[in-house]
Simulated assay, not measured.
Amino acid sequence: MKNIDKNNLSLRIAYIFESMLAMVVLLAVFLGTIDVLRMIWKAYIVDFQTPVQYSQLNDMLGQILLLVIGVELVVMLSLHIPGALLEVLLYAIARKMLLLPKSEGMADVLIGVLAIAGIFAIRKYLVIKDNSNLNVTSIHYEDCEEGQDCDECEACREAKLKEAKSKH
């Protein structure tokens, strides 16, 4: 809420409401995780003598990807950066491709691959590099002092150095 006009009541209420919705989605993901664990328990522990069918495994993977999309949605609602939106879209397209019926032709797979390639192209060429590469594991809030350039901030330099090392 750092960049929001703190005197504007409607923006503050919207921010709080958005945070509450993110918590509701997170609660739904948590409950869905329990459901997935129950599915895995039933398929692999209770009925261990019966091999898991393709449709069962496909349903489990679809459910897990749906939970991942929910978590990424919470990240998108919390961070407000374009990179988070692109990740939600990426997982949604990947889930859709995973759940394509066997009888579907290659046209749907080709469209999915082109959509994923388009998202990577957007990320590479159109998304500003400042904070667009943040994810849950590398959240870095800038603690630059007033009037201090981001290149002068020690925390920002360390984050850029770590990112450069990880690319090599």
Rank of each mutant, 00 (worst) to 15 (best):
L21Q: 11
G32R: 00
E87N: 08
K167G: 05
A92V: 05
F30W: 15
T50A: 08
Q63N: 14
L61A: 11
K6N: 12
L110V: 10
A164F: 05
Q148I: 05
E142D: 15
T137Q: 12
M60K: 07
I13Y: 13
L37W: 10
Q148M: 06
P101N: 14
I34C: 01
S78A: 15
F30L: 09
A107T: 15
F30C: 11
L161A: 04
E152F: 13
L31F: 10
M76G: 04
H168I: 10
T137I: 13
E18G: 13
H80R: 04
L57V: 06
W41C: 13
D130F: 00
H80Q: 13
C153G: 02
I122G: 02
I122V: 13
A94D: 01
L73D: 02
N7F: 09
D47I: 08
V52L: 01
N3L: 02
L66T: 00
I40V: 12
G112F: 01
Q148Y: 01
K102S: 07
A94H: 00
Q148C: 02
L79P: 04
S103W: 15
I64L: 14
E152K: 10
K2V: 08
V25I: 12
K2C: 07
S19I: 02
V46S: 11
G118I: 07
L67S: 09
Y141I: 15
A94Y: 01
L26F: 10
N135C: 06
Q56F: 00
L37D: 08
I13T: 08
Q63A: 13
L65W: 00
N3P: 01
A14M: 11
W41L: 14
S166K: 13
Y44D: 05
A155V: 14
R123F: 02
T33F: 06
L21E: 05
A28K: 12
D151T: 09
I139D: 01
A121E: 08
N58V: 11
K6D: 04
A115R: 00
E87T: 08
L100H: 04
K2P: 10
L134A: 03
K42S: 05
S55F: 09
L27C: 14
Y15A: 14
A164G: 10
